[in-house]
Amino acid sequence: MHLILFSVFGLVCVAGAVNLLLQRHPINSALSLVVVMGALAVEYLLLGAEFVAAVQVIVYAGAIMVLFVFVIMLLNAGEEEQTHGSRVAWLLGLPGMLAVTVLICWALIQDRTGQVAIGQLPGHPADLAQLLFHQFLLPFEVTSILVLIAIMGAVVLAARPESVQETKREQ
């Protein structure tokens, strides 16, 4: 049952991702991405990582993608023209993607040390908190500082320099 559901939602996820690329209207692409996020959340849930699944929905589908849709609505982005892309992309991109996929699959099949059964992943919030706030405390804090820097950068970019405002007022 778990395996069937896992495969079904895996297919939904891939279908959403392909649809994201094929759709010509940005808002349809954004909604396909929401479907991908939702399907990924279900995959996490099936693996037993319930907290990650919930956070995936709340943060990615519920906040970040809403902002994506918001920006698309605000800019009133229209339909895009379908092009066939450059020839280099076809010649190098497709074989490259296949090669990377095969490589990842091969590496996963070779290395079976980290495997657990479906639904047995230590995904309880308490387990996750142990890992995050004890074992990986430093990376966690470093990431938070990175995010802080990004926020400050956004504020600096969004705030108009005072000199510009003053010159406008003088005019």
């Binding site: 808002i27 909604l31 929401v34 319930e50 907290f51 919930a54 956070v55 929905v57 709340i58 589908a61 519920g62 906040a63 809403v66 849709v69 918001f70 609505m73 309880h124 919030p125």
Partner: peptide
């Protein structure tokens, strides 16, 4: 009864915004 009940409610209600946003657009 799920053991992340509160997060499930928050997650589902946070998706409700799509109905409003998409109807507007």
């Amino acid at each position: 009864d799920v053991n992340i009940g509160l997060l499930v409610v928050l997650g589902i209600t946070s998706l409700g915004v799509y109905g409003v946003a998409l109807s507007g657009w």
